[in-house]
Simulated scan of single mutants.
Amino acid sequence: MEHIGVVGAGAWGTTLAKLLTEKGHAVTLWVRERELAVTMAREHENSLYLPGIELPEALEVTTSLAEVARGCSAILLVTPSHVFRSVFTDLLPFIRESPLFIIATKGLEPNSCMTMWQVLHEVAPSMRTLAVLSGPTFAKEVSRGLPTAAVAASAEAAVALRVQGLLSTPTFRVYAGSDPLGVELGGAIKNVIAIAAGIVDGLGLGHNALAALITRGLHEMTRLGVAMGARAETFAGLAGLGDLVLTCTGDLSRNRQLGLALGRGAALSELLERSPTVKEGVNASKGAVDLARRFSVDMPICQETYAVLFEHRSPKEAVASLLGRVLKSEEV
């Protein structure tokens, strides 16, 4: 049994805390909202982010970062990308040993466009025992024990293997990977493509259009990743193609649902006000466009999605712009 801290009680953080507790580990889950923490401790359910899923009584809930860090051999970081830096900075003074850090956030930091691995290393350059977790993982399905596969990637093979052993269960199969940058970029950019996929279905454009968009979206993700130093084959794996297909086609995808509503005429501001859950693809669209410019990579789907979200371009205009581009080779 290990003592494990989970920082972030959204649907995914709560699910991972549940999984680890059921494996027999002593788990402490950090909850930002005090009222939610009280309710979770009393009712053993995260009614805000993971309703209908019973949580183990052994799972400890706290609003104190000092408590979640105390005596931990491993700490999972599962906060939204836009608060990742601030929460990790607040957590750092309470780190007394050298725990294994597992980043399970899928996104890019606003403004800097950094991955969470890059943010963590900027805040704490000496951190070495570090891995990222990603893949096609709807929290609700994992929390119900439905078969799921993911990838844990680290620059150190031994670290990836340790995370693999820590998280794997009979229904949650974890593969070890060695390309954390590619895994993080896949997890972030697929959210942008998922918004575009939702727009395609919201406009009623058919299966042909959706299949083409997913395929060309994968091409965009891969080109950017390779330009930044990741490996192309990573994007053909669970954190790339696997997560992309799931997020673009599964109705549990928040980013796809956002795109569906946009395609049907809803306004972005209304959609974001209506839901308490973070749509990482909205922020990631800014990051994708900025990174594409920075690394001289053509990413038209991400650029058109950004234009719909932030430049008042209509979904129909975005589709027309994509279809009207100069004809070219598929390999370009």
Results as ranks from 00 to 15, higher is better:
Met1Asp: 07
Met1Cys: 11
Glu2Ile: 10
His3Leu: 06
Ile4Ala: 00
Val7Pro: 00
Gly8Cys: 03
Trp12Met: 04
Thr14His: 04
Thr15Tyr: 07
Ala17Ile: 10
Leu20Met: 08
Thr21Gly: 01
Thr21Pro: 00
Glu22Cys: 13
Ala26Gly: 08
Val27Ala: 03
Arg34Ile: 15
Arg42Tyr: 07
Arg42Gln: 11
Arg42Pro: 03
Glu43Ser: 05
His44Met: 09
Glu45Gln: 12
Leu48Pro: 00
Pro51Trp: 08
Gly52Ala: 06
Gly52Asp: 06
Gly52Gln: 02
Ile53Thr: 14
Leu59Met: 15
Thr62Gln: 11
Ala69Asp: 08
Cys72Asn: 13
Ala74Ile: 09
Ala74Ser: 12
Ile75Cys: 04
Leu77Tyr: 08
Ser81Thr: 13
Val87Gly: 13
Phe88Cys: 06
Thr89Asp: 10
Thr89Leu: 15
Ile95Asn: 11
Ile95Ser: 11
Ile95Trp: 13
Ser98Asn: 15
Pro99Arg: 07
Leu100Ser: 04
Ile103Arg: 12
Ala104Ile: 03
Ala104Lys: 06
Lys106Pro: 05
Gly107Tyr: 10
Leu108Lys: 11
Glu109Lys: 05
Asn111Gly: 04
Ser112Ile: 05
Thr115Pro: 09
Thr115Asp: 14
Thr115Ile: 11
Met116Ser: 08
Leu120Thr: 08
Glu122Phe: 04
Ala124Cys: 12
Ala124Leu: 12
Met127Cys: 15
Arg128Val: 14
Thr129Ala: 06
Ala131Pro: 04
Val132Thr: 12
Gly135Asn: 04
Phe138Glu: 08
Glu141Phe: 13
Glu141Ile: 14
Val142Lys: 01
Ser143Thr: 03
Ser154His: 01
Ala155Ile: 13
Val159Arg: 01
Val159Asp: 02
Arg162Ile: 02
Arg162Glu: 10
Val163Trp: 00
Gly165Tyr: 05
Leu167Met: 10
Phe172Tyr: 15
Phe172Gln: 01
Arg173Phe: 09
Val174Gln: 05
Gly182Ser: 12
Leu185Thr: 07
Ile189Tyr: 12
Ile193Leu: 09
Ile193Asp: 00
Ala196Glu: 02
Gly204Asp: 12
Asn208Ile: 09
Asn208His: 13
Ala209Ile: 08
Ala211Trp: 02
Leu213Tyr: 01
Leu213Lys: 01
Met221Lys: 05
Ala227Val: 13
Ala230Tyr: 03
Ala232Leu: 08
Asp243Leu: 12
Asp243Pro: 05
Val245Ser: 06
Leu246Thr: 12
Thr247Lys: 07
Cys248Thr: 09
Gly250Pro: 05
Leu252Glu: 03
Leu252Asn: 07
Arg254Tyr: 06
Asn255Arg: 04
Arg256Cys: 02
Arg256Tyr: 10
Leu258Val: 08
Gly259His: 03
Gly263His: 03
Gly265Arg: 05
Glu270Trp: 11
Glu270Cys: 09
Leu271Cys: 08
Ser275His: 07
Pro276Arg: 11
Thr277Asp: 09
Glu280Thr: 07
Gly281Ser: 09
Gly281Trp: 03
Asn283Asp: 08
Ala284Trp: 01
Ala284Pro: 00
Ala292Glu: 00
Phe295Gly: 01
Val297Ser: 06
Met299Gln: 09
Gln303Phe: 09
Thr305Leu: 05
Glu311Cys: 11
Arg313Cys: 06
Ser314Cys: 04
Pro315Lys: 01
Ala318Thr: 05
Ala320Arg: 15
Ala320Lys: 15
Gly324Ile: 03
Arg325Thr: 05
Val326Trp: 13
Val332Pro: 00
